[in-house]
Design a protein around this nucleic acid. Structure first.
Ligand code: FES
Ligand code: FES
Lengths: 142, 142
DNA sequence: CTATAAACCTACTTTGTCAATAGGAATAAT
DNA sequence: ATTATTCCTATTGACAAAGTAGGTTTATAG
């Protein structure tokens, strides 16, 4: 399984905030309860989203979180990359990564490059807006 | 990084065998040396390939391994699935896996299903034959 | 028939990441 | 002053990934 809970929870958190942020801030506690995720663990994840500039936070009573851009401007790819690090299927493709020593006659590099591309392209097309209101039955996969 | 050394080494092993099995069996020691992989670790990987019916093994002096099908009939997807288990990006998509409890209103299931599909389709199109003789410079990714 | 080269087998170790927990400090509204 | 929230640092337990170690069996060659 290539996507860890960090990435998955981050996405669920953002969708939940997007769906509940009408005027007021959305407290983490509420999201955790609605989504059935440990508050403490979710804190760790959300902290990274705030640092990354994806979320605006408001402290104190009445505080919480809200998106600081419209949902259409959050690509799934960028969110996952922030949480998971590079999504490349093999290490030598990651940005700024050291290339393999045997790269010159590697039979599989082309394969991995192509795989990286289809994954990236697919995830870049989805945004938070696409996920909001989405439900399994509502969509036809093919 | 979603593909572990097991899958990557398995692929490199099979390609190496495909390229060197002209009449005679290819000993593991030779592959390990050419590919710069620990013999002992490679044994573990190759054992699974033999059990899975991908390789024919011959013991004793003059022995080694050879493919028991032509290279075109080994899809990269099947090899990786044998070594890595299900390639699904999230657990609930794996074959025979327990579905998530909140599946009914999961906003992201459609996303993961689509991702699973593009990955599967991409990997199913590649075969060992495509990888043999492949080199980084020789191929144009797009 | 003996030496050798190979596959095969079982067990262990080391290292690191994932997922989560624990306990509090700072901040803002009521 | 109380309460509800975010923010911060540290620690834990479980598990898998990657590799190591040491031997047993089987086939060929001389
Ligand atoms: S996998 Fe990195 S060059 Fe082959
Ligand atoms: S991820 Fe399994 S149903 Fe949403």
């Amino acid at each position: 399984m290539m996507i860890s809970t960090k990435g998955r929870y981050a996405l669920r958190f953002l969708v939940d905030v997007a769906e509940h942020q009408a005027e007021s801030f959305v407290p983490l506690r509420d999201v955790a309860e609605r989504q059935g995720i440990s508050e403490k663990y979710l804190e760790i994840i959300v902290k990274e989203l705030v640092k990354g500039g994806e979320l605006e936070a408001m402290r104190g009573k009445g505080g919480g979180y809200r998106l600081n851009r419209p949902p259409e401007e959050y690509s799934v790819r960028s969110v996952l990359e922030r949480m998971e690090g590079p999504l490349a299927p093999v290490a030598c493709l990651g940005p700024g990564q050291k290339p393999c020593p045997r790269q010159a006659d590697c039979r599989t590099l082309t394969l991995w490059q192509g795989l990286d591309r289809v994954i990236s392209d697919y995830l870049a097309e989805f945004t938070l807006a696409d996920l909001c209101g989405e439900r399994p039955e509502s969509a036809v996969t093919r």
